[in-house]
Design a protein around this nucleic acid. Sequence first.
DNA 1: TGGTGTTTGTTACAATATAACATTTCAATT
DNA 2: AATTGAAATGTTATATTGTAACAAACACCA
Lengths: 166, 166
Amino acid sequence: MTDSTEHTAPHNHSVCIHTALTTASQLCAERGVQLTAIRQQVLELIWANHHAVKAYDLLERIKPLQSAAKPATIYRALDFLREQGFIHRVESLNAFVGCNDLKSAHEQLLLICKQCENVEERHADSVMQALTQEFVLAGFTAHHQAIEIHGICATCTQSNHIPQLA
Amino acid sequence: MTDSTEHTAPHNHSVCIHTALTTASQLCAERGVQLTAIRQQVLELIWANHHAVKAYDLLERIKPLQSAAKPATIYRALDFLREQGFIHRVESLNAFVGCNDLKSAHEQLLLICKQCENVEERHADSVMQALTQEFVLAGFTAHHQAIEIHGICATCTQSNHIPQLA
DNA sequence: TGGTGTTTGTTACAATATAACATTTCAATT
DNA sequence: AATTGAAATGTTATATTGTAACAAACACCA
Ligand SMILES: [Zn+2]
Ligand SMILES: [Zn+2]
Ligand SMILES: [Zn+2]
Ligand SMILES: [Zn+2]
C-alpha cells in the first residue's frame, strides 16, 4: 500500500472510523458545540466506508437508531457536520463523504471512482497553488472550492488489469 | 476591459449570443445531428446572460414559445446540448451555463460570482497540468472534471471598492 | 430554579430529475 | 409518392433531493 492510494487500497478501516469519531469529538469539545447522538450516528454512518452517501440513504440507515428520523433530521445533522468541517458535500453526486483530515483547514480535491465508488480526498498543493495563480489573473476572490474528478482509481485499475491468481 | 475579465465585465453580449448559436448550428450540421427548434430555443435562453440557469426557470421561459413544454422537454434538450458540448452543468448550483469555447475540447474551470451570479469559464492550463500530475501520483484515470469556485469576480470587486462617480 | 438559546419533532411542501409509453416528425429509401 | 425506421416530442406519473415553519424538548448558565 502506497501513500498515493491510502484510502482506496485495502486497509484497516476501523482505524478510519475511530480516528474520525474521536477527532470530531475532541474538536466539538474544544469548540463548545454538541456532538449529539444523532450527529455522531450520522457521522458514523457516513464513515461506514469511503463512498459518498446520499441523504435519504442515511435516513433509512439511521431509522433503526432514531425511529423519529425525518429528512430534516438528516439535513440538520449534515449541516452541522459540514459547518464543523467533518464532512464534505460531493456536489456532482448530491452526496456526502467524511473528511479525512480534520486537523488542518484545507481545500478539497476529490477523486471519485466510478467503479468502486470510493472517494479519495487529496490536498494537491500544486493544484491549489496553480488555482491561486489563476484567481490572481482573473481578479477573482475565492470563497469556496469544489474540485471533483470522476474516473477510475488506482486500485480498480490494477484489479482490472491483473488476471485472477489461482 | 482586459482579457482576464472578458465575460464578466461589460461587453456586447449580443456577440456572445450570436457566436454561440451560429457555432452550435454549424457543429450540428457537421455532426449530422438536429438543432431542433426546442434545442435552439433552450440554448438561446441559456445564453440570455452569463448566469447559470436552472432547468425549471428554463421551463417557465420556454412556455410562451412551446406551450406543451414539460420538465422532460427541458431535460432532454439539456442532455442534447451537454452531449454536444454546447453547455456545461454547474454541479454545485444544479444549473446550466453556456460553453464559451465550442471549438476546442477542454476541461472547465468555472468561476462563479456570488454577487452578480456571472459564471466565467477559464481554461487554466497551469491548473489542468497540475491536476494531471496529481492524477499520475494517485494512479487515477480521469474521465470528467468539475472544478467550480465560488467567490467574488473582478468586476464586482471593483464596483464594491470604487465610490460612485458624480 | 428559572430563563434562554439550542436541538429535535412534526407537518407540509418546494425544487430537481427521471421512467415509461404513446405519438409525431422527418429524412432516407423504395 | 408511399414505406419505413429512427429520432424527437408529448404526456402522465413518479422518484429524488432539499426547505420552511412552528411546536416541543433539552442543555446550560445565572
Ligand atoms: Zn478507511
Ligand atoms: Zn475504484
Ligand atoms: Zn456575453
Ligand atoms: Zn460578480
